[in-house]
């Protein structure tokens, strides 16, 4: 058995693919640092190398186009088990066929990549849907969130375009980083001493803008009265809006 160890980044994985080609071998697993090691295996450690990574990416773009690159990146973000081997298989097939294979859905790993891509994009969509900003005393609209996958970078473009005239910050409480927009550019931030509760994501009372509570209550009032009581359907509600998001939702949070 042959295992590759890489640093868990996308560039690291692309480097690992480069190594596999250069060494003319086919690893059984490509492991991130936290991955489960094999018991009896030859180990090869991959040092991330941007030049090698870029060459693999160029190759993928040349034969598969930009869409394929994005699809593979999204699939990678899913962090699902063995996604690394799937991507390696995909790249091999792509370099062998020298044409886009995205549509070959009868091929099991192409289909799996396709599904992972969709799963991650759905999570991006949910960031756009379920982010709730709260206005802080200094005028910044703040929203904590905990997406299942590391998709915040894919979602900030939307908010930058939409809320171009307000300062906002979105914070990933699981991965402990976020983005702050201050009127011109979006910058990545890390908050050391958070002024919000990690459990509820709620700003502490003294940090809140004075009429924030009014808006919150009005929105809850609206949420209550727009439902038709003869048609209550909590199952449907949970299907569309899974419970894991509720603690960040103004209308559902207690």
């Amino acid at each position: 058995m042959l295992e590759y160890l890489y640093d868990g980044t996308f560039a690291g994985l692309l480097t690992a693919i480069f190594h596999a080609f250069r060494r003319k071998e086919y690893p059984d697993v490509i492991l991130r640092p936290q991955g489960q090691r094999l018991l009896f295996a030859t180990t090869h450690t991959v040092e991330t190398d941007d030049v090698m990574a870029q060459r693999v990416l160029n190759g993928i773009e040349r034969y598969g186009g930009k869409t394929t690159c994005e699809q593979l990146l999204h699939a990678f973000l899913s962090q699902s088990d063995n996604v690394e081997i799937l991507i390696l298989q995909y790249a091999r097939e792509l370099f062998f066929q020298k044409r886009p294979i995205m549509a070959d859905l009868g091929n099991s790993f192409v289909l799996q990549i396709h599904k992972l891509d969709r799963r991650v994009l759905r999570e991006v969509q949910r960031v756009l849907m379920f982010i709730r900003f709260e206005r802080s005393a200094d005028g910044i609209y703040f929203a904590p969130f905990a997406p299942k996958y590391d998709v915040l970078p894919l979602a900030v473009g939307h908010f930058k375009h939409r809320f171009a005239d307000q300062q906002w910050a979105i914070y990933d409480t699981l991965r402990d980083y976020g983005f702050h927009y201050h009127g011109k550019r979006v910058e990545q931030i890390t908050i050391n001493a958070p002024a919000f509760s990690r459990d509820s994501g709620k700003l502490s009372v003294e940090m809140e803008h004075e009429n924030e509570d009014d808006y919150r209550e009005m929105w809850r009032e609206y949420f209550r009265s727009i439902a038709i009581s003869e048609r209550l359907n909590p199952t449907l509600q949970r299907n569309f809006m899974p419970k894991r998001f509720w603690k960040y939702l103004t209308e559902k949070r207690i």
Partner: peptide, 24 residues
């Protein structure tokens, strides 16, 4: 699209922001 100095934009496919107790 968002106009400079303005607020907001529309998404072609639409975005749902919440789901009421009747599931709509």
């Amino acid at each position: 699209a968002n106009q400079p100095g303005g607020i907001g934009s529309a998404a072609k496919a639409g975005i749902c922001h919440s789901f009421a107790d009747d599931g709509r």
